[in-house]
């Protein structure tokens, strides 16, 4: 199973590193990253594999949300099924 992590906010040093570190701690494998910086704003979409997740998915979502808050970013973590069901028949 996969999930999509989106990170938006003001650019700063180490955003990708801290998100990746948290993924690794939770047993989440990063499959793909797409990121762009427009002026000082940062936007990243990360596709991750959650099969090896070592905690509840809800707990991982909360952890990422908290991480975002600590860094002044908005991080949302959503199961891939919501995108698949909305955009694929």
């Amino acid at each position: 199973m996969k999930a999509v992590i989106t990170v938006t906010g003001k650019d700063s040093v180490g955003i990708i590193a801290s998100v990746a570190e948290n993924c690794s701690k939770a047993g989440v494998n990063i499959i793909d990253i797409s990121q762009s910086v427009m002026k000082e704003y940062f936007a990243m979409i990360m596709l991750v594999d959650i099969d090896g997740l070592n905690t509840e998915f809800g707990e991982f979502v909360d952890r990422m949300t908290r991480l975002g808050r600590e860094h002044g970013l908005v991080i949302s973590t959503m199961h891939e099924d919501i995108f698949n069901s909305m955009h694929h028949i």
Partner: peptide, 12 residues
């Protein structure tokens, strides 16, 4: 495969 514009549309 998920497409970035679809992801952004859903989040918006």
């Amino acid at each position: 495969m998920l497409n970035i514009s679809d992801i952004i549309e859903t989040i918006n």
